[in-house]
């Protein structure tokens, strides 16, 4: 497990995440490329496309999400996670919760509208036909105000 404090102090941009988001040396050149928003000026939002996620393994996806969230970012996934990945996300989140430091995640997706439109082969192969927009953030910064089948309304606060 990565140390909980790995990214909040240095701002050196040398992370251990394989994704290249946030600490890509070429991404802005402004000097604030630590992947966090520890300058206190705002809350960063990463919108991650389905195409970007497609090339990653389940574990890489989970690291990408949790590294971002632990830096205080809001992560929005265009296509969400498979049930199996969601299950692993909960499991890994649990192992990283740490008193006074990380109290877990808030996650919201639209419910799958119809589980019945999947073929048996899809299910055997673990393929998910339903792709759903998913919002994930630190539990102490993201609060869901309202949720129904067509609208998710959330409040984001700075730490």
């Amino acid at each position: 497990m990565p140390e909980a404090t790995s990214n909040v102090d240095g701002g050196d941009g040398i992370g251990d995440d394989p994704d290249g988001i946030g600490d890509d040396p070429g991404d802005d050149g402004s000097g604030n490329d630590s992947g966090g928003n520890d300058d206190g000026n705002g809350v960063r939002i990463d919108l991650i496309s389905g195409a970007r996620m497609e090339g990653l393994t389940g574990m890489e996806k989970i690291r990408l999400i949790l590294d971002g969230v632990r830096d205080g970012n809001i992560v929005i996934l265009e296509e969400g996670l498979s049930p199996d990945e969601e299950s692993k996300l909960i499991e890994v989140t649990m192992t990283e919760i740490n008193p006074d430091e990380f109290s877990g995640i808030e996650i919201e997706t639209y419910p799958k509208s119809d589980a019945g439109d999947q073929t048996l082969l899809d299910r055997l192969m673990g393929r998910e036909s339903a792709q759903k927009l998913t919002v994930i953030g630190p539990a102490n910064q993201l609060q869901t105000l309202h949720k129904d089948e067509t609208l998710i309304s959330a409040l984001v606060s700075r730490k």
């Binding site: 498979s82 049930p83 199996d84 969601e86 299950s87 909960i90 996650i107 919201e108 997706t109 419910p111 799958k112 589980a115 299910r123 673990g126 998910e128 869901t144 949720k147 129904d148």
Partner: peptide, 15 residues
């Protein structure tokens, strides 16, 4: 109608 319930039922169904 909570996220945890939605996810867990989805996980159970997927298996």
């Amino acid at each position: 109608f909570t996220q945890v319930n939605t996810m867990l039922i989805g996980i159970i169904e997927s298996q």
